[in-house]
Design a protein around this nucleic acid. Structure first.
Ligand SMILES: [Zn+2]
Ligand SMILES: [Zn+2]
Ligand SMILES: [Zn+2]
Ligand SMILES: [Zn+2]
Lengths: 144, 144
DNA sequence: CATAAGCGTGATATAACATAACAGCCTCGG
DNA sequence: CCGAGGCTGTTATGTTATATCACGCTTATG
């Protein structure tokens, strides 16, 4: 279990390696999705110089639930809630790329997994909802 | 390469260019997701030699709803139903990569779009459910 | 015929995303 | 000392996707 110090707040806050901290900090500062190479550009000052270093940290952070990957954009974003298990989704504005993380209830998750056919036992869901944000809606027409 | 089956009238069957027919035929023969470059390898015999040719055809076929992209795999698959609008999802076995297309009801679609927060007007949903298929379930342990 | 527009395609080059594989340096425990 | 394990650095390469220009064909238009 939690062999580290008592956590005052909601999340256990697993300890991070220096590189993981740098890259998580970069994503949190940005507050928006970044490509791995955009992250790399922003942490060169911190002594990180090569793609594998970035991808290693990102993969570790994703395992901890502190970073999520936007599959439809090949981009990464810090969890809006510090960290979370697999019960999240994203809403994405197709015009300005604004992203809002959606935390799914257990019921939502269950209903989503229930959409799987009998021949596949569902475990995990990837859900990304595209649309228009309030700011972009007035000026954009329909997509097709 | 007869890509213009006359099936019994359920779908309009929009006319396809020669390259589109070749690539759709390739995907239908395969019956499983393929990367764009895997498709390229399979249609070199048909005189298609460069990536942009493949991507052009794939994008056109996706607009027609006859091919879908698996975002979590960067792969493409022929629509299991000939063609469909945006109301589909996928269930994917993480062990053998078997893919089953799920056709969402209007109610499903509405509920999914309803998960979007108020600040984003939802238009389109990307849903991919990962799990284990019947064949793989017995021999695979949990993922983590 | 000449010209131009539209479309599908061919071809070159490059951009963007991701990983394999190996090497170095710690720290820890025997 | 020595080896194991964790973390990082580095080189090289593999994979996915697009920008851009060029060519040939068909169809108006004059
Ligand atoms: Zn989250
Ligand atoms: Zn927007
Ligand atoms: Zn379909
Ligand atoms: Zn399977």
């Amino acid at each position: 279990m939690n062999a580290t110090h008592h956590h005052s707040g909601k999340h256990p806050a697993p300890k991070l390696s220096p590189n993981q901290s740098k890259i998580l900090g970069c994503l949190r500062e940005a507050g928006e999705p970044m490509s791995a190479y955009a992250i790399l550009d922003h942490v060169r000052n911190d002594g990180i110089a090569h793609p594998p270093t970035v991808y290693r940290a990102l993969n570790d952070l994703m395992k901890k639930g502190m970073v999520h990957r936007l599959e439809s954009r090949s981009a990464f974003i810090a969890c809006g809630d510090g960290a979370c298990d697999g019960r999240f989704a994203f809403a994405i504005c197709r015009a300005c790329d604004k992203v809002v993380e959606i935390h799914l209830s257990k019921g939502d998750q269950t209903r989503l997994l229930g959409l799987a056919p009998a021949e596949i036992v569902p475990e995990q869901v990837t859900l990304e909802i595209t649309g228009l944000c309030e700011a972009c809606a007035p000026v954009q027409a329909a997509p097709v």
